[in-house]
Amino acid sequence: MNNKLNAKDLINVGIFTAIYFVLVFAFSMLGVIPIFMPLLCVVVPIIGGVPFMLFLTKVKKFGMILIMSLLTGLLMLLTGMGYFALIVSAVSGLIAEFVIRSGGYKSASKAILTSGIFSIWIWGNYILLFINREAYFATRQSFGQEYIDALTNLTPIWICPVLLVVAFVSGIIGGLFGRVLLKKHFIKAGIV
């Protein structure tokens, strides 16, 4: 089999990134309410798991997940979430790529694990909040002091690694959720 990415693969990457991003963006609007800010780490990977698992059924070559991951990071940069997500997504995308390859692009459990690792990109959005709290809030000054206080209380420094784990676990839950939907609907409809 030809292992180079062809146009069809790249178009698939574009389509699924678009769906993924629209969903992520819609749910990220909840972040305006302080309590939802850390909770996004749970919500986004679970919802995103559905398109991602469907995407994985189209992935048969090395590179597709990495490109999707990079594009997601790039979109975060364009929507003003900072450049950390791009750095994290490059690394997590590469690891996800190796994991799915180790399962020969067929293994279901590896696919769910991949969904977990891929989801770690969202953790990148929080890094600035922990390593440079002043800089983070300087960019959110206009949200008002109450928002800042609420968010500071909600995110003590030890929660940083916790969020990483939470993102990973939620990604796995999202993967399982996506897999259930895949079995229930998509295989029946002949999409997969």
Partner: peptide
């Protein structure tokens, strides 16, 4: 790279 142009334009 073409590998980024195609997904981006599709997206």
């Amino acid at each position: 790279s073409e590998k980024l142009i195609i997904p981006l334009s599709v997206m």
